[in-house]
Design a protein around this nucleic acid. Structure first.
Lengths: 332, 332
DNA sequence: CTGAAAGCGCTAACAC
DNA sequence: GTGTTAGCGCTTTCAG
């Protein structure tokens, strides 16, 4: 049996209330008493039981994080931002992978809530009706990180993907391109369907360029799929001269497709993408990209959550973070 | 106030013990009663409080995971393996980043233990005396994943990095190389110092080749540092003809250094490395590599932990997983 | 500044 | 099959 607050109290000849006070840094303890208690704690090797504390105080100092897949560097980086701020505010994190499956997401949310997390950060492709309903029953704050909260009043932290996509495509257009392919991630993902694609089309329209259906290539967001999609691009009736990729992994897939067949970038094709990983800089030519502040997305989400958990009034619960564009060798 | 087991009991006209039984799937409940209780649970939206349960049962069904840095794909991949098996056995995961700082590691361990985790998976570069001492006080099983447990009797799951390194270097030697540089991660990391470097030297010795101090290049394990280290390699008195890199990120750094100066791989230099990420396949030329089964390392660690938590007798608590070599374009 | 006492919501004997 | 009754280890009034 582990040593409890009661053991310490007996050893120190005080009540457990006093021990509790010193453990919790309550100032209403005579220094001498505090010292005595601290010694006993040390001597007995007392370790406060956070579960008991959680039950009594109704606060667990842990927050839930539901993420599609932690092995994807996009989410890993974001999670690190969350974790660092969590640490700063002395929260632990319960981390679960949903694989974006709606039923799994609901299970996990239910599960985390049962574990009495003080708050929750949720990431996904889109919000199913079930998850919205489940979230509505939650009695703790929930923040959506890098996830569109459309039609909900949930707090969110994002970048303006549409504007970023617009800017990326605009860059290509300014470089003289008229036939630009958009190699996208899955349309099931709100950010792809509602933001990146829309920004792409807006840039085209604004420049008076036609939106060609065949120029929209959907991938499953993997390198390998993108690599294979090059064959599709190559066979296009109308020959494109530039590529706007949804992220760098996709971009590198296409890039390698292009180069493995003897074409070159940026001479034959210019390429621009969203940067999520080191890949953008590690390939040759290095990719011109929209830099997504993943770490910050996580950090700001967690910071927002701490405010919410703390009952602070937050002026705007829909935060938009800045991004920037870095021009490298894949564009002229 | 959330609805409790007591509310359900009252509503269903049974005792809280009965409600507890149906919630926990205990068979000793008449089907009719079960049905009635289930309905009330549904109607009231009852969600069992895992904290109270944890306090009463002394089991939290959560395990701690202490990882150097989840944003590194090495650990992210490994953690996914852990998480999947954890899910399978209905455990949650508390995930914390240590940044490999010994004091932080001790704090975290203490913290997780305080949260009453049922078990713990630990990853680090090496085990400090403090962490060993702290681990000794733990009353729950701890598994080291991808971390050398040298001189401890802690359960571990690893691959044979020394043998793998030996094999990689042997491949280079077999290809006719006599001057092979080892671009390593930090020596502070046991796996680098005690395994990869040793395997490298063993292969050299066995082939009657000299071990040249200057041919050992230490990096901080980042792409950028490795990229810069190329300048060092280039200026070497004795000119090497092959590179053995500690991982693919390093390898790509060196590779880009080589290629950005107009040399080529594998013609001028052959390169081999340990593969941790997609990078190995995404660069050109693709890298010949030792494939490290990161996901499995995590999965097997967690599986082992479940056995330990379950009090099962485990024949061998030091598991060595197989790896394999994949020959690609960076070697001839 | 310190102590006593009442829970927090649930599990786990132990009765019936 | 079902109910009763102790706790689990701590926080938190409320007294003093």
């Amino acid at each position: 049996m582990a040593v409890t607050i009661y053991d310490v109290a007996r050893e120190a000849n005080v009540s457990m209330a006093t021990v509790s006070r010193v453990v919790n840094g309550n100032q209403n303890v005579k220094p001498a008493t505090r010292k005595k208690v601290l010694e006993c704690i040390e001597r007995l090797g007392y370790r406060p039981n956070a579960v008991a504390r959680g039950l009594a105080s109704k606060k667990t100092t842990t927050v839930g994080v539901i993420v599609p897949d932690i092995s994807k560097s996009y989410y890993a980086e974001l999670s690190r931002g969350i974790a660092d701020i969590a640490t700063m505010y002395e929260y632990n994190i319960i981390l679960s992978n949903s694989d974006k499956r709606a039923t799994r997401e609901v299970e996990l949310l239910e599960d985390h809530l049962g574990k009495q997390v003080d708050g929750l950060i949720f990431m996904s492709d889109s919000l199913s009706d079930e998850i919205r309903a489940e979230m509505a029953t939650a009695n703790v704050p929930i923040v959506l990180a890098g996830t569109l909260g459309d039609n909900t009043d949930l707090p969110t932290v994002n970048i303006d993907h549409e504007e970023a996509a617009y800017e990326a495509v605009k860059k290509l257009i300014d470089n003289g391109h008229e036939r630009i392919v958009h190699v996208s991630g899955p349309m099931s993902r709100d950010i792809n369907r509602l933001c990146k694609k829309v920004g792409y089309e807006r840039a085209l329209k604004e420049a008076g360029l036609p939106i060609i259906d065949e120029f929209f290539i959907e991938t499953d967001n993997t390198y390998d799929d993108a690599y294979e999609k090059w064959a599709v691009i190559r066979e296009l009736e109308e020959k494109p001269t530039a590529i706007f990729a949804g992220n760098d992994e996709i971009a590198v897939g296409v890039l390698n497709g292009i180069r493995d067949e003897g074409f070159s970038v940026p001479e034959d094709y210019e390429v621009i993408c969203f940067q999520h990983t080191l890949l953008s800089r590690a390939v040759r030519p290095q990719l011109t990209a929209i830099i997504v502040p993943l770490y910050d997305l996580g950090a700001v989400s967690m910071r927002l959550l701490t405010k919410l958990m703390n009952g602070e009034e937050v002026e705007d619960v829909n935060v938009i973070l800045p991004y920037h564009k870095e021009v490298r060798q894949s564009t002229k």
